[in-house]
Amino acid sequence: MRLTDKTAIVTGGASGFGAGIVRKFIAEGAQVMIADVNATAAGQLADDIGGQAIACGADVADGASVAAMTETALKAWGHVDILVNNAGVTHLPGPLEDISEEDFDRVTAVNMKSVYLTARALVPHMKNRRKGAILNIASTAGLSPRPKLNWYNASKGWMITATKTMAVELAPDGVRVNALCPVAGETPLLKSFMGEDTPEMRSKFLATIPIGRFSTPEDMGNTACFLCSDEASMITGAALEVDGGRCI
């Protein structure tokens, strides 16, 4: 029960890596807000989990929506200990010059602007309490980019840099900031990364992962739990690879 008496907001928490993080946090004793643009899916997961979870429809690329999400959490619990910036999107694979402006704007808004918006909403609260943990879900794409996912890669590289600069600035205030860098996993985004979900394309991706499998929501939940727990009190500014050796 590493997160007993902790409260956490997990964005994009209704599916994929986010749902894995939510379930692990609940199992370890936390109270968790499942914040997701798909409010119905968030509500269904909260109902499935039970009383320790609450659902909140939220668009992390919209400042008013993020402010409302934060207000809901503070009204429910009085404080927020943990923020997990998990919500993310990608564009389909293609030459960098062919990606539409609409897709570019969506990737930067959800993957990058959201980190600014949640920080603006929650960092003052954490500073005032002189404690807190922020975890940004980045990607191996930000460390070892694959061709034809250029602007997604760039957004995750930005997230890693944001994590490090947030960490060094907020450390004197007792707030830790870390990132996870998962390899492609069994999530709703997998097909978008590959372009098509075929045995041949899966084999191509798996050939780049020495451990021989995709990452799972459980992998993310286990690692996120450690980094957001008091056991990791000396760890800040890390971009931890959870990638089966892909970046070696």
Rank of each mutant, 00 (worst) to 15 (best):
Q44W: 05
Q44K: 14
Q44P: 00
L45R: 08
L45H: 04
A46T: 13
D47I: 00
D48C: 09
G50K: 10
G50I: 06
G51L: 04
Q52C: 10
Q52P: 08
I54Y: 04
I54N: 05
I54E: 09
A55L: 00
A55H: 01
A55S: 14
C56Q: 13
C56M: 06
A58R: 08
D59P: 05
D59I: 04
V60R: 09
V60Q: 10
V60M: 12
D62H: 11
G63P: 02
G63W: 05
G63E: 09
G63T: 14
A64C: 12
A64F: 05
A64V: 12
A64T: 11
S65A: 05
V66I: 09
V66N: 09
V66T: 12
V66C: 05
A68H: 14
A68Y: 01
A68K: 15
A68V: 02
M69D: 08
E71H: 02
A73W: 12
L74A: 02
K75I: 06
K75V: 08
A76K: 13
A76T: 09
A76W: 06
W77I: 02
W77D: 03
W77G: 07
W77V: 03
G78P: 03
G78A: 08
G78E: 15
H79C: 07
H79I: 07
V80H: 04
V80K: 01
V80N: 10
V80Y: 00
D81L: 09
D81A: 07
I82V: 11
L83F: 11
L83M: 02
V84A: 07
N85V: 05
N86G: 02
N86Q: 13
N86C: 11
N86S: 04
